[in-house]
């Protein structure tokens, strides 16, 4: 019997949702946390991949947009009382103290604020040659951090925000991840998506075909910033405390790593990469603990985890230079042809 691909996709989505429901109900809080963290990294990796992999822009400012999203959503969802508890050194500005939005609205506003900042940064920076963009965005992310640290009455400065409402439930984060993935798939499969890839492949030819290259770059940058803001907001609502030190280059680097590992220019790759990296980072945590290895007893080597992780990364990159997926995407046809090939090998 031949099942149409659309039906297969619907079935797979239902199965995925069921799996998440089961996991959410049966796993312990620690495992659920990893599960949810994966979803947030899926969103972040997808949004960075839109820039790096699909538009061919190398940006290092992701953490900055995440910070914007995280702070906006946190401040918009906390009650005035919660804000007062946070802002005990310098009181919060009165208008911000009073506003309180429902979570989803706050999340949307957080994304839009990040997108707006993206527009303000992108419009001048994207006129620069591509190599300067990395530096400009890197600088921007640092500036955002400095601003947040110093804007005490708005952000509570270096103390950060604590007791942020814990809205990032499994359903919320995976729903958002699914929305981000669906958004990107639809965008990139559309006519507009083709112009994005055309800009990546050859700017001069794209211009000559009537593509407003600058406009496309800015659009892509703004969309990417939006989802980075949403991802940052969800992260805040998951770990419930944020401070400026969280949003350093290291965070951008982690996301970049997922994108490269999964495959620059592959949505499937970013999704798989985000899940694998998040789970692996947690699974390897035991390496930092004291261990009994038959005869040897180690005292616990903090940092060993990162070493092993980097090694795995290097091996993957050595053997699969284009990441797990290259620029390929999952499709039912590819899957069934893979299954056939494996079947033939097994049959022999």
């Amino acid at each position: 019997m031949k099942i149409p691909n659309k039906a297969k996709t619907a079935l797979a989505l239902a199965a995925g949702a069921a799996l998440i429901a089961v996991a959410d109900a049966s796993l312990g809080p620690f495992a659920v946390r990893i599960l949810n963290l994966s979803a947030i990294y899926v969103i972040l990796a997808l949004s960075l991949n839109l820039l790096n992999g699909f538009t061919g822009l190398f940006s290092l400012g992701h953490a900055g947009f995440m910070a914007v999203g995280a702070y906006v959503s946190a401040l918009l969802t906390m009650s005035p009382a919660q804000k007062d508890m946070n802002f005990f050194l310098t009181p919060i500005v009165p208008w911000l103290r009073e506003v309180q939005l429902p979570f989803l609205a706050a999340l949307l506003v957080a994304g839009l604020c990040a997108a707006l900042v993206g527009l303000l940064i992108g419009a001048p920076a994207l006129r620069l040659r591509d190599d300067y963009l990395a530096i400009a965005t890197l600088g921007f992310a640092e500036i955002i951090r400095v601003l947040i640290t110093n804007a005490q009455p708005l952000t509570n400065g270096a103390q950060g925000l604590k007791a942020i409402p814990k809205y990032s439930t499994t359903w919320v984060v995976w729903g958002a991840a699914a929305a981000a993935a669906a958004f990107l798939v639809l965008l990139l499969r559309s006519s507009y998506g083709r112009t994005i890839k055309a800009v990546r492949d050859d700017e001069i030819a794209a211009e000559a075909m009537g593509v407003n290259v600058f406009r496309v770059k800015v659009t892509s940058f703004v969309i990417s910033s939006f989802w980075a803001g949403v991802g940052g907001a969800l992260l805040g609502h998951m770990i419930t405390t944020i401070d400026p030190k969280m949003f350093t280059l290291m965070l951008t680097f982690n996301i970049l790593l997922i994108v490269v590992l999964g495959g620059n220019g592959s949505i499937t790759g970013s999704i798989l990469g985000a899940i694998i990296v998040t789970v692996l980072m947690e699974a390897l945590r035991f390496l930092d603990m004291p261990m009994n290895l038959l005869f040897i007893r180690t005292q616990g080597l903090p940092g060993l985890r990162m070493v092993i992780f980097s090694l795995i990364l290097m091996i993957v990159v050595l053997y699969r230079q284009k990441g797990l997926m290259g620029t390929n995407e999952f499709s039912w046809d590819a899957l069934s042809s893979l299954a056939r090939r494996l079947g033939r090998k097994g049959g022999k």
């Binding site: 006519s191 507009y192 083709r194 112009t195 890839k197 055309a198 990546r200 492949d201 050859d202 001069i204 030819a205 794209a206 000559a208 075909m209 009537g210 593509v211 220019g265 620029t327």
Partner: peptide, 17 residues
Amino acid sequence: RLFKDMSVLENVLVACH
């Protein structure tokens, strides 16, 4: 100067946009 990571048809479709 073709768009190298795109198919023949997609190359033409970019121009249709």
